[in-house]
Design a protein around this nucleic acid. Structure first.
Lengths: 236, 236
DNA sequence: AGACTAAATGACACAGGGTGCCAATGCAAT
DNA sequence: ATTGCATTGGCACCCTGTGTCATTTAGTCT
């Protein structure tokens, strides 16, 4: 879209005065400290030493700021899906891809948490998320469509895209305030619950929860493959 | 919230110059004919014979127009859930309530389709939907929380709320352009797929789809009045 | 009838988001 | 030095949304 022109050929014309990343960083900083509504685009532009008009050449909307180069992220998700062998069952494949997609390097965790906190808290950003996630859902829908031999806009592909995003968002919401548990664990648990949805009654729910509330005795091995969800905690 | 003051006690003071419904009707009409972005609040106000300032006393946002009195609708959903007997399994209960919630009288179908079409098509309205649906999800989460004996903001209640909305939205998207099939059928199918998510491979998907595409086989007359909630459940 | 009360409206001003337009800028190649 | 060109900055403009206040229009009380 607007992104990805950071270093195409670096040839001629007046040099750029800023970067998506710089603007995003300054913006998120101001938003978290003063609150989204109390920060004007003018202030962000000033802090970046750039005119207001130029800001809008980098980001189409003030609300796009915390998303950084999200188009690139969506491509990363597409890549994760492409890596999954054809033999893996549909939802297992989606689950694995989404989990891997949400693996963040330890040093970037705090910043990531801040961004997600903003995105899922501030009303105007919550609103914008629905639009930003359109492509995200689309990638899942495309993958599902290929698997089911259907059109990407038909019922089940769209449903799977929608549901996968639901699981991810619910996981984000729980992860944001909890500094102990790894994000991938939440994601993985969400998908596990998704697949067991029809058995989700008091007993089952409590059992699944034990994975999240830290150490309370011997965990029963809910074994999903090589257990991708439980990594990352001892990496600080 | 802002609504529900249409006819409280009808006492003293200057009489109202318009209604939520009138403004909404005019707005949706203009939006569908000229496109959301090309209609200004000023134009809507003019068409309703009201000042622009007054418009914003009825609706907090231009994007709230197509939603009508959504708070009342959310209460209706809460009511549907309250009617479900305690014995019914969780997802079955949610499914039934959402299906009933989405039953629209035949004479209101066209208008409803127009509104949903706007809401799920126009970017700014798509964005707003995320905020509007917050309470909707909350109602499902509360119900789930009571069933699982958990806090409404904990993981599984939020997940179920999120997922239920996903199913509904995916159903809406498919229903909008298809004038033949009843909305409740789509909703019901979506929930059926939800519960069978882990078995959703080529064969199963195709089988579930047969309910939607009428062409082949004995066409079951869409008599939605009878068997409301279990059109798709026949697991072993 | 006339004064009083109160809810709602309308007019105005203002901050902020977003866009179109055009001249100015600064670097590279000629 | 001149030219080419992508990018910037400044300006005007429309729109959304909000605070403020005088004005309207009823019902009610004396």
């Amino acid at each position: 879209m607007t992104e990805n022109h950071e270093t195409p050929d670096r040839a001629l014309g007046r040099p750029r005065a800023t970067t998506h990343d710089v603007l995003a960083e300054i913006g998120v900083e101001l938003f978290t400290s003063r609150g989204y509504e109390h920060v004007s685009v003018q202030q962000i532009a000033d802090a970046a030493g750039v005119s207001r008009r130029t800001f809008f050449r980098y980001f189409p909307t003030k609300a796009d700021l915390p998303w950084g180069d999200f188009a690139r992220e969506v491509e990363r998700l597409r890549g994760e899906l492409a890596l999954v062998p054809d033999g893996v069952p549909l939802m297992e494949a989606v689950r694995h891809a989404v989990v891997e997609f949400n693996r963040v390097p330890p040093e970037a965790v705090d910043q990531h948490r801040a961004r997600l906190g903003l995105i899922l808290t501030e009303p105007e950003l919550i609103a914008r998320s629905q639009v930003k996630f359109l492509d995200w859902r689309g990638v899942i829908a495309e993958f599902t469509a290929r698997r089911l031999d259907m059109e990407p806009t038909s019922f089940f592909p769209e449903l799977v895209g929608e549901v996968a995003l639901s699981a991810a968002v619910a996981a984000y919401r729980q992860w944001i305030p909890s500094s102990d548990t790894d994000l991938t664990t939440f994601i993985d648990t969400a998908f596990a619950a998704l697949v067991d949805l029809d058995r989700l009654e008091q007993g089952v729910a409590a059992q699944l929860s034990t994975r999240l509330d830290p150490p309370a005795g011997p965990q029963e091995n809910h074994d999903h493959r090589d257990n991708p969800g439980n990594a990352g905690e001892e990496r600080q």
